[in-house]
Amino acid sequence: MIQAGEFRKGITFVMDGDVWQIIDFQHVKPGKGAAFVRAKIRNVLSGGAKEITFNPTERFEKAVIETKEMQYLYSDGELYHFMDTATYEQLPLSYESVEEAIKYLRENDTAVIRFFQGKAFEVQAPNFVELEVTETEPGVKGDTAQGATKQAIVETGVSISVPLFVNIGDRIKIDTRTGEYLSRV
C-alpha cells in the first residue's frame, strides 16, 4: 500500500480498478486548511490522463509492473517491432506506447519495456544516447557571450538545441529524460 503523501513521478498504483501512473505531482500546504496532493496521472492501459487532488493519507494498492529489456527492430509505418533477446519473441507496439522513447532509438538499440499483467504499456529509451548530427546550420562567430545555441537534427529525426560549435557529422550525447544536449563524443 502507498499513501498519496508518498507519491513520486513514475509510481504506479491501483485506483477504482484501473492502474494509474504519476506523471507529475505537487504537495500543497495552504496557509489555511489541510494539506493535499495535486497530481497529474495517466491510465497505464488506455493512456488517458487527468489531474486529481488527493488527501495525503489516502491509501492505494501499488501496481506490480514488470520490466524487460528488448531490442528495437524496425517500424513498418504503423507498428514498432521489438524483440526479446532471450526468447527471440517479437512484440509489435503502437505509436502511443513508444512515442517518448522512439525519438532516441535507432534500429537494433535496446530499450526497457514496462508491462502490467502481460500487456506492454510503455517503452523507455536508455537515459543517455549517442547520436550523429545529420542537419544543422553552420555556427556563426560573434554573439556567444550568453552561450548561444542552434537547432540540430540527429539521425533519429529529433531536433535538439546544441552549442554553436557542433557540426554535421559530430556524435553528441543526449539525456533522453530531458531531451538536452550533454556533450560531443
Rank of each mutant, 00 (worst) to 15 (best):
T57K: 13
I65R: 01
V44Q: 03
K40F: 08
L45M: 14
Q21I: 05
F7I: 06
A34T: 13
T12L: 00
L45R: 11
K40N: 12
D84S: 10
F13K: 01
F82N: 09
E58T: 14
E61D: 12
Q90G: 11
Y80N: 10
K29W: 04
A39I: 07
N43Y: 03
V37E: 02
W20L: 07
N43A: 10
V14F: 00
P30Q: 07
V44C: 08
V44W: 01
K29N: 07
M83Q: 15
H81G: 05
W20Y: 11
D24H: 07
M83T: 11
S75M: 09
E89C: 08
F36W: 04
V28Y: 06
G33R: 04
H81L: 15
F36M: 01
A34W: 06
Y72S: 03
E89D: 15
V44E: 01
E61W: 02
W20K: 02
F13I: 08
D18G: 02
G33M: 03
T53Y: 01
T57W: 05
Q90W: 07
V19Y: 00
V37R: 00
G47N: 06
K62V: 13
R42H: 02
G10K: 06
L91Q: 13
K9M: 11
L79G: 08
F60Q: 06
E89M: 14
T53W: 00
F7T: 03
R42I: 12
I22F: 00
K50I: 14
T53P: 06
T67L: 00
T53D: 10
D18T: 06
E58P: 00
D84G: 11
N55I: 11
K62P: 05
E69N: 13
E78Y: 13
E58C: 05
E89S: 13
G48T: 12
A35Y: 04
Y72N: 03
V44M: 04
V44L: 03
Q21P: 05
W20G: 04
F60N: 06
N43D: 11
K62C: 09
Q21Y: 00
L91D: 03
Y74F: 14
V14T: 05
V19S: 02
